[in-house]
Nucleic acid binder design. Structure first.
Lengths: 221, 221
DNA sequence: GACCAAATGGACTAACCGGTACAATTAACA
DNA sequence: TGTTAATTGTACCGGTTAGTCCATTTGGTC
């Protein structure tokens, strides 16, 4: 500190050598940033804190992501890409309509329960009115298509007579999402206000069954 | 600015006189704070901005609320007290069980739709893991009892045979809340990702009916 | 092995922002 | 009317924080 202050700019000692690793550095920054943003939100997150969690320096954050918001956007985009990959991994077309819907609901519920980081990030982005989703090209071309899966299974169910007609696929999706999302997003307030722990294994299991049952009852004749 | 800088501390000109109005000042600060917190979150909110929206000065914020978090907590508490008043205002005991549940769901849905500020504040508080709810005495003695209303109506419904037995009242509450809450909380992300506006009048109306229908189907034999 | 673009480090800064010091005024009440 | 606690205004401060400047090293290419 004392000597550094009188050394000419940028003339400080540095570790003898290092190896370049652009992808590793990028990855390291993104991981650190995810932790920090998910915990503290966009304005609550500290760039210095992210840098500290990283193997590299703050300088690199700005080198690769431009500014704090650019980094935030990158984290957000990656998380949406992951859930999209999850959705594409679902293979429900071969199942009976009821079974397909039950599985979709269960898997969606599980994905949210197992990825609270994703839930928190979506909450944070909604607080910001979806401003960063709106300005993201990667998100624009993402084509989140849980809806297509739903449309297909629901259509088959209506055709075979097990489901009642007249429901919009988007409404099915919203119901499934609401039940899965809320269970994670509002865990803290529910616990404080009702003393009920939605994260407890038995509560979670009961809630999962309830969600599946609720969706099926909503769809049946 | 120029002359002010060389004037002794606190010796600045002030408006000739003023009338004391503690309650008015408090009210004014709380209203300004609600706008700012709800829009920007706890860490995103600026005390100077709140002060600017107020009829009074920043000094008063610290005088009445101690610090930024104290003010945040006061806003949070007031919003929870309001929804509690709403819940107590519901008179469902005189209705048939199905009608009571339908009304409760509809009213809850409407309350959330009409009070996005409340929804946003709860989101923000959940991001903070409910830390401020936990340290609030006013919340601790609040006794949010939508649950009691549910237990009563559900019990009657089971007794009269229209509802199936074995459902926990808290689960009924969670289902209702999830459907009502999600519709407001995730509006922005749903719009960006699916191009669907949950806030549009017709979408809102359809969603409201869907929520009521879903809850009743969940409860019926 | 000379050259150069990409990648990296460390110190530094300007603005911002929560919170405070000091002084003054008001209003209740004896 | 004098006293005093409650209330209010203005200027200011110290720490924090996003972002930058300058220099240096790496590693591919010809």
């Amino acid at each position: 500190m004392s000597k550094a202050a009188i050394r000419p700019r940028g003339a400080g000692r540095r570790s003898a050598s290092w190896t370049q690793d652009p992808e590793g550095v990028r990855r390291s920054i993104l991981d650190a940033a995810r932790l920090e943003f998910v915990e503290n939100g966009l304005s609550g997150a500290r760039v210095d804190e992210i840098a500290a969690r990283t193997a590299t320096s703050k300088r690199m954050i700005y080198y690769y992501f431009g500014d704090k918001e650019g980094l935030y956007r990158a984290v957000l985009e990656e998380m949406y890409e992951r859930i999209r990959a999850f959705e594409r991994g679902l293979d429900l077309a071969s199942l009976e309509p009821e079974e397909a819907m039950a599985r979709l609901t269960g898997f969606t519920f599980d994905y949210h329960a197992e990825n609270p980081d994703f839930v928190r990030m979506v909450m944070i982005e909604n607080i910001h009115h979806g401003r960063h989703l709106a300005t993201s090209d990667r998100i624009a071309t993402l084509n989140l298509s849980g809806i297509d899966v739903i449309r297909e299974a629901y259509g088959r169910g209506v055709a075979s007579g097990v489901f009642r007609p007249g429901i919009e696929p988007i409404d099915i999706h919203l119901t499934i999402s609401a039940l899965a999302f809320y269970n994670v997003s509002n865990r803290a307030s529910i616990r404080q206000v009702f003393g009920h722990d939605m994260g407890a294994p038995e509560a979670l299991a009961r809630r999962r069954e309830s969600a599946i049952d609720t969706v099926l009852r909503m769809l049946r004749r």
